[in-house]
């Protein structure tokens, strides 16, 4: 049987603070007995308040952090085994929040080539990969430019191309849009969706923007290091009161639909898009007219 891309079993991570003599001062359990799996080719979103453990979890997936208890397998490789680390990092690439911290070269194409070069990929193939990756994120025309002159969204797309050039099977994005304007956010999210659909890359997206996850295959909600909700976006966002309890929110149309249902309109649960709401309202009006006849 084909294994899942990511399997997390009974994962615990504790940040332990020690004083000068090495005595334990405090223990912070950032991840508390977490179990989940991500199928190959899926687009999974992780939501949660600041400090809920999302980033700590993400850093386990490409073995930046190691479990205190429990285990993680990435494409069947256990992250606890030292020998697996390079394979794991090549399998699962990470994109972080601040685009400026991730750019290393002075020319876009050299930045993208940095990863494969480090992996010892032959020169001809590096150039081929650079071209393919820049093409995939729609940044090919900027290949000879300085990254400094790019917008935030463009820089993030270059960072994603840099990861793609290492041919990962999975990309983990930790709030990649937090520092971008609406247009930059749109660029990055549609780029990631394309990669997921066309290149079949498994995506794990961490975000605070609810409207970025409405098309995900699965949404995971974390609180205090635990998974508290798991399901399709429609399942999750139809539980408006519950999700707000976890310091989160729903897309504005979902909130409007929820408020209208509460006031007595017979709308379907978990409306996620403007079109869905408008269509439902049109149908509702029509059926009211039919009844009146």
């Amino acid at each position: 049987m084909d294994r899942d891309m990511i399997e997390v079993k009974k994962l615990v991570h504790e940040y332990i603070r020690r004083d000068e003599d090495g005595n334990v001062e405090s223990i912070n359990r950032a991840i508390d007995n977490v179990n989940f799996s991500v199928k190959k080719g899926d687009f999974v979103a992780i939501l949660g308040a600041n400090g809920s453990g999302k980033s700590t979890l993400a850093k386990h997936i490409n073995a930046i952090l190691h479990p205190t208890e429990g285990s993680i397998w990435v494409n069947g490789l256990n992250t606890a085994e030292e020998n697996n680390i390079w394979d794991i990092r090549q399998t699962a690439g990470m994109v972080f929040q601040n685009p400026d911290n991730q750019i290393v070269a002075t020319v876009v194409e050299e930045d993208v080539g940095f990863g494969p070069e480090n992996l010892g990929v032959p020169t001809d193939e590096i150039w081929e990969r650079v071209e393919q990756s820049l093409e995939a994120v729609g940044m090919l025309e900027y290949r000879t430019q300085s990254p400094n002159k790019l917008s935030g969204g463009q820089k993030q797309r270059v960072a994603i191309a840099g990861i793609m050039a290492m041919k990962p099977q999975c990309i983990v994005l930790d709030e990649p849009t937090a520092m971008l304007d609406p247009n930059g956010r749109k660029e990055v999210i549609s780029t990631v969706r394309e990669l997921n659909k066309k290149e079949k890359v498994t995506v794990l997206l961490i975000t605070h923007h609810m409207d970025e996850v409405t098309f995900a295959d699965k949404v995971i909600v974390m609180e205090h290091g635990k998974i508290v909700m798991q399901g399709t976006p429609r399942d999750i966002f139809s539980r408006v009161d519950e999700i707000k309890q976890y310091r989160l929110d729903v897309p504005q149309v979902t909130e409007l639909a929820f408020e209208l249902s509460k006031a007595g309109l017979a709308l379907p649960e978990g409306i996620l898009t403007i079109d869905e709401l408008v269509d439902s309202l049109i149908k509702l009006k029509q059926s009211n007219i039919d009844k009146a006849k």
């Binding site: 609406p182 504005q252 079109d275 709401l277 408008v278 009006k285």
Partner: peptide, 20 residues
């Protein structure tokens, strides 16, 4: 200008276009 209005503004405009 690469900006947008709130989602609810779009809902109202779509409703108007549909004869509401």
């Amino acid at each position: 200008m690469d900006l947008a209005a709130p989602q609810v503004t779009y809902v109202m405009n779509a409703l108007k276009e549909n004869g509401f």
